[in-house]
Amino acid sequence: MEARYKKKNTCGTICLKYLLFLFNVLFWVAGGTVFAVGVWTVAEKSDYISLLNSTFYAASAYILIATGVIVVVTGLIGCCATLREMKNLLIVYFILLFCIFLLEIIAGVMAYMNYQKLDHELRQNLKWTMQHKYKQPGEDGVTQAVDKLQQEFKCCGSNSSLDWEAASVG
C-alpha cells in the first residue's frame, strides 16, 4: 500500500523541474540587474535628477530598486519551491509571477501612451532649469549638473544651443 502513495519521478517531470529551476535562476539574475540599474541611477546619475522640476523622474529610480528586490525575492521563492517541490510555495510563486506580469503590461502600456508627453515635459523642464537656475546664487548643484550633462553628452542646451540665447534674453 505504501508504494501506491510514493511519488513517481519520470524523466519528463525531472526535466520540467530543472527547466523551471533554470528559468528561476534567470529570473533572479534579471531582477538583480534591474536592482543594480536602479542603484546605479541613484548613485551615479543623481546629479541629473536635480535638473528636473518633477519628482516623478527621481521616483522612477527607486521604483527600479523596489522592482528588482521583488523580482529577486520571487525568483528565490520559485527556486526553493521547485527544488523542494512544495505545492503551497509554488502557488505563491505563480501568484507573484502573475502580478509582476500584470504590472509589466500596465507599465508598458502607460509608457507607450505617455512617451511623447514625457519626452516633451522632460525637455521643457530641463530647458526651464537651464534658463532660470544655471549660475544663480544658491544653485551650485544645478550649475555643476548642467555642466556635467553637457560635457558627458557633448551637447549644448536642452534641444539646441538656441536654448542659451533665450536664457540670456530673459
Rank of each mutant, 00 (worst) to 15 (best):
I106P: 09
L96H: 14
C79D: 06
N125L: 12
F56A: 10
A81V: 02
L76F: 08
I95C: 01
L126D: 10
R84S: 03
A66K: 03
A107N: 10
A66L: 08
V92K: 06
Q116V: 10
N88G: 09
S60F: 05
V92C: 08
T55G: 15
L118S: 00
Y93H: 05
C79M: 07
I63M: 14
K87Q: 06
M86I: 14
I65L: 03
A107C: 11
I95P: 10
V69D: 01
K117V: 13
A59Y: 10
A81L: 05
A81N: 02
L118A: 03
V72L: 10
F94G: 12
G75P: 04
K117L: 09
L90Q: 09
I63F: 13
L90R: 08
L102R: 00
T82C: 07
Q124L: 13
E104A: 05
Y112H: 11
L118Q: 06
M113I: 14
A107Y: 09
Q124R: 15
C99W: 12
V92S: 05
V109A: 12
L118H: 05
Y62D: 02
A111D: 01
L96R: 11
Q124K: 15
T74C: 02
L64Y: 08
T74H: 04
L64C: 05
A59L: 11
K117Y: 11
L76G: 06
I100L: 10
A111M: 01
F98P: 11
Y112T: 15
C80Q: 09
I77R: 04
K117T: 14
I95Y: 11
N125D: 13
A66R: 05
F98C: 15
V92H: 04
V69I: 14
N88M: 06
T67A: 12
M86E: 13
A66F: 03
V72T: 09
L102Q: 05
N125R: 13
A81T: 08
Y57T: 01
L102T: 09
N125G: 12
T67D: 10
A107W: 12
V109W: 11
A59K: 13
Y112V: 15
M113G: 10
L118V: 07
S60L: 05
R123I: 10
A66S: 09
L89C: 02
L89A: 00
N114A: 01
N88R: 03
L102M: 04
C79Q: 04
I77W: 07
G75K: 00
A66V: 00
T82K: 02
A107R: 11
G75M: 02
N114P: 12
K117S: 11
L122S: 04
V72E: 04
I65W: 01
C99K: 08
A61Y: 02
K87C: 05
Y93D: 01
I63A: 15
C99F: 12
A81D: 04
M86H: 13
N88P: 03
Y57H: 00
D119Y: 14
L89R: 04
T55P: 15
I65G: 07
F101I: 01
L118K: 02
Y112A: 15
H120R: 13
I77H: 00
N114Q: 04
L97H: 12
E104M: 09
L89V: 01
F101C: 00
C99L: 14
M86C: 13
C79K: 03
L83N: 03
I70H: 06
